[in-house]
């Protein structure tokens, strides 16, 4: 996609946050529009038709969730929510209401850019018609249903493939437990998280180089799972002894 034509609408009441978001996005070549409250934000979303909206939840004039709901009433534009609280219930609620992903303040630009990329990629996939999703060594062909790791084909059961399929269609974005449970087992198993935990463990054994330290199939505690499309970008540096120690056990 052509980033210079990709417009991002930032709805946040704090000028400092808007300022660094503008700088961060423009540095990557995006076009940025700002709105300092929900009213202006909603107007801008309608008039300017942005390709992605970054929405703060703590707006002075309207609850962020309300803004989300109003935009979703007429548009499927990707929305990434900025939330202050690390409240899992709230995150799940927002995702169910149609947010594509969330970032908890304080956050780094790299994290937000990764979410933005993933959301835009998912939004524009229909246009590019690319059926293969890649995450590190892993590649998932959504049409032929072939899954390979480092070129070698991986045998998956139907449910295992279903899990990867759902995550791959949301590559880089979080998918809630409820959604996964519903898509894989049906809506009557929506509370049996333990099935999902075990299934994820089995899939990790097949696709992760070290299943005890997953880099591709990432857990979002209390919320769901994410297929990390850029797994080389680890969030912290691990000391080299790690691998040796892990092997020795």
């Amino acid at each position: 996609m052509n980033k210079s034509k990709t417009a991002i609408l930032v709805i946040d009441d704090e000028p400092q946050i808007r300022r660094f978001l503008r700088a961060g996005f423009e540095l990557e070549g995006f076009t940025v529009r700002e709105a300092e409250n929900a009213t202006v934000g909603l107007k801008s979303a309608t008039l300017n038709q942005p390709d992605l909206i970054v929405l703060d939840l703590g707006l002075p004039d309207l609850d962020g969730a309300e803004v989300l709901e109003r935009i979703r009433a007429w548009s499927s534009v990707p929305i990434i929510v900025l939330s202050v609280e690390a409240d899992e219930m709230q995150k799940v609620r927002l995702l169910r209401m149609g947010a594509d992903d969330y970032v908890v303040k304080p956050f780094g630009m790299a994290e937000l850019l990764a979410r933005t990329d993933a959301a835009l990629r998912r939004y524009f996939r229909g246009v590019t018609k690319d059926s293969i999703v890649r995450a590190g060594d892993l590649s998932i062909d959504l049409v032929t249903r072939v899954v390979t790791v480092g070129g070698a084909r991986v045998q998956l059961t139907r449910k295992e493939y279903r899990l990867l399929h759902v995550l791959a269609t949301h590559a880089g974005l979080v998918v809630t437990h409820q959604q996964l449970l519903k898509d894989i087992w049906g809506s009557n198993q929506i509370h049996n998280t333990q099935y999902l935990r075990i299934l994820v463990r089995k899939v990790r054994n097949k696709i992760e180089s070290d299943p005890s330290q997953p880099r591709i199939l990432i857990t979002e505690s209390g919320v769901g799972y994410r297929l990390e499309t850029n797994p080389s970008e680890t969030k912290f540096v691990r000391s080299p002894v790690l691998a040796e120690e892990a092997l020795s056990t």
């Binding site: 400092q16 946050i17 961060g24 780094g108």
Partner: peptide
């Protein structure tokens, strides 16, 4: 407390993370 203290921190961290990419 969460808002008053963490909001400026979010700006500091965010801005630093942008600088880190310049």
């Amino acid at each position: 407390v969460s808002h008053e203290l963490r909001s400026p921190l979010a700006s500091i961290l965010g801005s630093a993370s942008v600088l880190d990419r310049v």
